[in-house]
């Protein structure tokens, strides 16, 4: 899938249409923010703050083709800054043993309630959640994900791989829970 608003890349940053920029990016930025903060109000504020930063500092960007990465990187830095302020940043690279492959067929995922998938995705450890959300937003190549999160490409690829494993496990658990809940309801 092509990145949105390809037409805005043909000129300099000063020529960008602010309203179009908001139109093109506020939804994916909000979804990324929601996956990071897991709170709607925080996600909305992070999205607003990102455009506020763009309004005050965006002119410093020389290369208009980097606008998308600039916006996502700014949002991610803002999130990390706030998280550090809250003194809750204690997650690290997981040393847990590799999770065994879980079989959650795509056909099952298609039929799952959107909230279940969202909860499973947002419940992942942050180091996997951020790259995986950008991966599934389908607007960033893995090179751009690496630039946005400021980690090497190899790290992005391994985190996507491990993140997917965690997601599959969470979805498998959700499917199992849902099935047992339904069985329980039938017996009641």
């Amino acid at each position: 899938m092509a990145a949105p608003a390809a037409s805005i890349y043909v000129r300099g940053v000063a020529d960008l249409d602010f309203e179009k920029l908001v139109e093109d990016f506020y939804m994916p930025l909000y979804r990324f923010a929601l996956s990071l903060s897991r709170q709607e109000s925080d996600a909305a504020d992070l999205t607003q703050q990102t455009f506020f930063l763009w309004a005050s500092k965006g002119h410093q960007l020389r290369d208009a083709s980097k606008v998308k990465t600039w916006l996502f990187t700014s949002l991610y830095r803002e999130f990390l800054g706030r998280k550090r302020q809250q003194d809750r940043f204690v997650e690290g690279e997981s040393n847990a043993e590799a999770i065994g492959a879980q079989t959650v067929p795509a056909s099952v995922v298609n039929q799952l309630d959107g909230d279940i998938v969202q909860r499973a995705l947002f419940a992942l450890e942050e180091i996997y959640r951020a790259p995986l959300t950008l991966f599934y937003l389908q607007q960033h190549s893995y090179k751009e994900i690496a630039e946005t999160l400021e980690v090497p490409i190899g790290t992005v690829m391994s985190r996507i791989s491990r993140g997917k494993e965690q997601l599959r496990k969470a979805l498998a658990d959700s499917v199992g829970l849902t099935t047992s809940e339904k069985t329980k309801q039938r017996h009641e």
Partner: peptide, 18 residues
């Protein structure tokens, strides 16, 4: 699997009026 997850994520709405 990727298409299914991406479709679900793409359906997450932003708050009205954002």
């Amino acid at each position: 699997f990727d298409r299914a997850i991406a479709a679900h994520l793409g359906n997450v709405p932003a708050p009205f009026g954002l």
